[in-house]
Amino acid sequence: MTSAESRFHPDRAARRLVGPIFGAACLAATCTGVLALVILLGAIVAAALQGPPHNPWYALGPNLRELAGLVQKLALGVQSSNPARAGYRVGLAGSLWLLGLVAVVGIPIGVGAGVFLEEYAPPGRLRRIVQTNIANLAGVPSIVYGILGLALFVRAFGVKAVALGPTLLAGVLTLSLLILPIVVITTQEALRAVPRSLRQAALALGATRWQMIRDHVLPSALPGIMTGTILGLSRAIGETAPLLMVGAAGSLLQAPKGPLDRYSALPVEIYNYAKEPDTRFQMVAAGGILILVALLLTMNAAAIVIRNRFRRYD
């Protein structure tokens, strides 16, 4: 026996034991998140199926047609105090309006701001301040944006002539500001990933800055910008609190026809059904959530796929 061996006493058994236990704990923790997602979807499907024939939700196969029928019925019906007839047509239409208009108003501003900060703004103190400001805006609770929209767009500080009231446009503007930081930050990240050599090649041919950005930088950054756009839009249609603040109506029987009409939104209607004490409305709320979650998860999954593919190329 050498002296070194006698002086080191590694507790091999304990070390060998604690490692896998810790690893398993970490794995379990990771699965909690995934499990939560599964339980969440399962519970909602189950609740949606609590309709007349009480089939267990895990027997989804035979219930699938029923579920599709339910979702279809909910998507076509309007708000009602009768749970058997209640639906989301108005809210769904409102959400689609919001989606389209935010894409037209909010996304260009966000992408434009990202391009300005990354390609035009001279580095220095001012740019750092603006950058920090955007990072902070990303952390502002959504309800604060709602308060901003309420005071600025809906009421216009009490100046009636310019106040928009609880109209679709007020909601669009509020949500556009809300998603601005996400879109700006992802746009900047995408632009930063465009190689310098590409920019130099364009400039060396006598291109102006905008010609270079328009023809080379933006097309190369497009997948990243798309990711930001989708994430921003999915955030916009999932938000409830700011819309409650700027007056998305809970009960409305007419879908909006233009930006200055009153409107409702899918999550707001879900909220209204969910807080009803009558448990039969829970089924209605669950159906609405199914529609909303399906929409959002599709959008988010698309964003994740685009981003991962994009990463593989650089």
Binding site: L37, L40, A241, Y271, A286, L296
Partner: peptide, 21 residues
């Protein structure tokens, strides 16, 4: 990506889940 998807679920859904489950 699964965890990222979890982050994309709107908060109203979590509220509903509290009541339901």
């Amino acid at each position: 990506p699964m965890l990222e998807l979890l982050a994309g679920v709107p908060t109203i859904v979590y509220g509903y889940l509290a009541l339901l489950l």
